[in-house]
Structure formats: C-alpha cells, structure tokens
Design a protein around this nucleic acid. Sequence first.
DNA 1: GTGAAAGCGCTAACAC
DNA 2: GTGTTAGCGCTTTCAC
Lengths: 359, 359
Amino acid sequence: MISQEKNPGNAATPGVPVKMDRAHPVTLREVAEAAGVSTATVSLVINKKKNARIADETRQRVNDAIRQLGYRPNAMAKNLVSGTSKFIGLVADGVATTPFAGQIIHGAQDEAWKHGYALLIANTEGNLDLEKDAIAMMLEYKVRGILYSTWFHRPTAVPSTLRESDFVLVNCFSPDSPSARAVVPDEAQGGQSATDILLRGGHRRIAFINTTTPAPAKDGRLAGYRAALEAAGIPFDPALVLEAYPDQEGGYGATAELLKRDVSAVYCYNDRMAMGLYDGLRENGLSIPGDIAVVGFDNQEVIAAHLRPPLSTVSLPHYELGAAGVRMLLGLEAAPDGAALKIECPAVERASVAVHSAA
Amino acid sequence: MISQEKNPGNAATPGVPVKMDRAHPVTLREVAEAAGVSTATVSLVINKKKNARIADETRQRVNDAIRQLGYRPNAMAKNLVSGTSKFIGLVADGVATTPFAGQIIHGAQDEAWKHGYALLIANTEGNLDLEKDAIAMMLEYKVRGILYSTWFHRPTAVPSTLRESDFVLVNCFSPDSPSARAVVPDEAQGGQSATDILLRGGHRRIAFINTTTPAPAKDGRLAGYRAALEAAGIPFDPALVLEAYPDQEGGYGATAELLKRDVSAVYCYNDRMAMGLYDGLRENGLSIPGDIAVVGFDNQEVIAAHLRPPLSTVSLPHYELGAAGVRMLLGLEAAPDGAALKIECPAVERASVAVHSAA
DNA sequence: GTGAAAGCGCTAACAC
DNA sequence: GTGTTAGCGCTTTCAC
C-alpha cells in the first residue's frame, strides 16, 4: 500500500488554504462558527442570493472563513434539499468501445456541462441486466434525465424502467413507442451529399456499394443516392447498386464486380469499404481519382483523412448527436414534426474525387 | 415541445407497479405508512441487514408496498448519511475525443461498476479552467477518488485541487510528485515484444522508424528495440533507426530512406506510420511480408486488423489502464516499487510477418 | 441584516 | 421484532 498524503506541505505555503486533514470535511456550519455568523448567512453568501441583504463586512468575513478552511459545499446535501440532482445519465451499449462513437459521450458531456449538469455514464455492452442496474442507479441519483444511446444507428426497444425518468434516445429510435424523443443522423441527406460530391465532379455513371447488413443506414443511404441521381436527372440503374459486407475486406472483394459496371465513380456505404476498395482498385492498376473517383461515409478520421489519396466522405455527427440529445432532454430543442430529430451528416471533401473542370 | 407521459398505461396493466405521476417521488416514509410499519423497519428490509430480526410476514408486507408504490431509494439521502458517495471521478484531457483511448473510460467504468461505484466523467479538452471546475464538482460530490487521465502517455502536472481527494494518474505520470500513484503502459516491454515478433520471424537486420516527437513512448519503444536486439545477440546499429512524424504521411515519407538500409524487416513507432509505409513499399513494388516484414505499435483496430496484409503489432492497453487505475484508487492493487504501475502491451500477431521456416 | 428552526430522505442507536 | 429519534449538510421561511 502506498502512502500518499493529501495535503503535503500546505502549512508551509502561506496564503494557501489550509485544509485540515481531518476525517470529516469542512462543513458550512464550521464556516459559520469561524466567521461568527449563522449557517443561514453563510448559505446566503455562498449562493449569492439576489435579495440577500448582507453587510459587506459580514460577507467579507464569511468569504475569508471559506477560503481559510478550504470549504467545499456538499453537493449531496444540496441536492437532497432541492430534490433534484444536477446529473444527466448516459447509458450506452458500447459507445465507449467503438472508436469514433465516443464522440457521443463527448458531445453530451460538453452540452450538459454548459447547462450546469454533470454526466453519469454507464456502458452496458448490450447486457440487459447491467442496463437495468445502470438505469436504476441513475434513477436513484435522481438524474434530470437519461440519454439512451447505441453505438450504431438502429431501432431499439425502450427499457421499461427508462420511463420512470425523462429520456431521449440517441442514435437510435423506438418503432414501438414513436412518441419517445429521439435524435438520429440524417442518413438520407448524408447519402445524397455523398452522391452530390461525385455528381459535382462531373460523374454520371456512379455505382453504390451498399452494405449487406440491414439497418436504417442501409435504406437511408440508398434513398439519398437515388434522390441525388433523380435531382440530377439521371435515371436510377439498379445494376449499379452492389452489396458487400461493410468492412475493408468487403470493399476489396467488391472490386471485380464493380469493374464490370463501367462506372467512373463509386460511393461506398462506409469508409472502411472504401479503404478496401482502394486496395482492389490499385491492384487493378487503376488510379484514384484519375480512373475512378471514390467517396465513403462515416468520416472515420484515422482512415479517411490518411488514405492516399485522402478520402472524400460524409461525416457521422456523433458529437452533435450527443449534444442535441442533451438539449432535447432539457427541452431546449425538439423535432419539428414530433418524430426523431435528424442531424445533418456534413460532406467532407478531400482528394478522392477530382475537381470538375467546368466543361 | 413534445408531450411525453412518464408512465403510459400503467394503470391498465395489473400486476405492474403503479407509480403515481406525482411531483414528489415515493419516499421510504410512504412505504412505511403503506406497510403499516416504521421507517426503520423498511430501511432494514431494504438493506437486508444481517442481524435484522424481522418477521417474515412483515418483510413480505414491506416488499409488497415497495413494489406497489414503485419505490426507488434516494441515493442522495443515503450518501448524505454515510458521508461518502459511490462515485469515482474520471477527468480526461481528451480520451473521449481520440478514437481508441475511449477504452480508458470503458475499463474504468467496468471496474468501478464491479465494486459498486458509478463513474462521473469530465472531458476537459486540456482547458485548465474547465479542469478546475470539473475537479471541484467531483470534490463536491464527495467522490471516492479521481482518475486523472491523458489521451496519450505523457508527463503531467498534478492540479493542486486534485490533492484534496485520493487520485491516480492514468496514462500519465508526474515528474514533480513521484509519490503520486500512476498507471502507465509498459512502452519498453512493448517495444521489445514488437521487435521480438520480427526476430522470431528470422530477421536480423531490423529497422526502427521512431517518432520525431518527444514522448515517453519514443524513448521506451526504442529501449525495447535495443533490449530485444541485445537479447538476440545482434549489435545495435544506429543507422537502422530512422525518425518520422508519427502518422501515415510520416511512414510513407520514410520509405525511401528505409530502402537504402537494406533491411528485411521494419518496426514502426505506430500503426499509422505502418499504414503509410505499406503504401510506400507497394509503390516500390515490394510485397509484405515477402520482401519486407512490418510490425506496428498501438493495435489501432480500424487500421491494423484491416490492412492488407493485416498488421502485426503491439496493443496499447487502454482498457486495462482504466481498470487498473480504479483498482489502485480502491487500494486493491499497487505498483511493487512504489513508482508507476506498468501495464503490459501484449503482442498481436497477424500476417505482416512471415512465419519463420525453422531453419 | 441576521439568526433560529424546520425539514429534504435516509440510517443507526437505542428503546421497548 | 419493531418503533422512536437524532442527526447527515444544507436551504429556506420567518422572526427579530
């Protein structure tokens, strides 16, 4: 066991609060005694109450005592009195696990903090018992509300205990209780933006390598592709839509099929597929974007920004998802139509699509 | 504003706890009244006190009342009484931001949970004011202790307020206060393991592309490389150590220099460099691992596992760092020598090094 | 201007 | 076996 003093050498540093190393932390009552006033007065000073008619001299004495003793308010006591805590819970099925989705935590934490709330997190890794316990814990801490988030965009069931509190679904939605508030990425708009990058590059025959796995993203990204084509007056050709497993190997494996399609550009379901496709294309002696232009989806930084050439793609707005979740929870924002709030997936243009020489 | 009832249709579902939609949640006192016993009895039943001599029939009535009313204990009140909370704070300078370091949160959360603690997190993004506020908040919530973590392994200063609580440095260490408990990755062992993979592959002339940026990792990984060589009886040749910026571009850019060295294997400071090097090698018509074997460091999943060929590397144990941090904080584990606890960086062998045909 | 006192929801002595 | 009661540290009327 390592010995570790809590306040080494404070006594030797004049002017610095000297916190006694007592078992019990300094209480408001002790501050009051030290300042020779009542606890009520100290409370008023601390909370800077508007109509607090406190003599400047008194206020001064109290503040001195606070500094002297190194007083820290006890948030538990505070919350007990007020009945509500300043916590927002975040239960995640794996956002901490997966690389970029940690941004949901980040966005939620920033936004929560901005409004004076602290984040209480729980990673359930999909374990339902754990999830139940996590929610119970948050309920017991009287959280202001709970953000229930999934690491990839998908439908989900709302755990019944979640209803004992305010809650917002983040990156997921509940088909069973459509009235539940939710915030999700706008997959269709993203798919359209991705396709638009290619369209702006002058391409007309554009393939889409979709995923084989069913998901809102699969449908949404395809819908966006079709919408973009339609807006550009290009007829949809089902033959140009391939499917593959959504990772590097899938993208690589789709190369041969793709090359039979005689296209000048490809939009991949995600960046990982694009990464695999890069390899496949290269092996066939094709250059990007010269011979074929490529866009991905997700903007998975480690990959997209550093492939050669850097990959144009569309960003999955995890940070915004977390932040918007908090705002919805706090009633600062709502979906216009009462359905899920859709967050934009912004295009990120890099070098995998040549700039169109305006012909 | 969306209307959202908290307990839709409960009244229609017999057998399910009917939680009134009252402003005030159900209290222990109300449970006591409903069950016709005193609050003390209810408290005893809830906390399953060992020496609680409660009639089975009474216990039954209490439990029924609890279920009936949908009672949830108020953790704030509980903690107020006990004086300590069941929180562990985690302040991070960016673990939620960077891809894989979110695992620190994950590991800490799992381990904390295992011991009955909840995680209170704060991402400071390096902002010192925010950091101070975050620590203050945690102190006010009377956390059991604080994990102070950095997103990459580095020396750090210990904020003075941190000393008001128990704390453990995670993924960082304090040169100024060596007595502060800390847990860090074992870079030297990792470097040695990485080099060993190559050695076992039968390689003798092994280059090391180190980073240009000063960091414990830079020194440690080099030391490990030298130790492995020495253990294998291979003299250290400074000419085989190159330096480059630690990303894809850096690795790619180092290709030319590397090829002048006439080596059969390369150990890269990190996976991103290895990824860039793959491109460089390929452009020079060299195959991996046939012409040249490569190992990386970090085991950045999205990259390492999906390059072609998949990259052999060494894992940065972020999850373990977080978990060990919690254990140290709780006094369940300590560094043997009182210095920083070093966590192993396990080798992850994939296909970028050929298996040695035992000659 | 400031203090006394009630009470937030719970636990733990100590009665009976 | 079970009830009474005194706080935990704080906020908040309401007196003075």
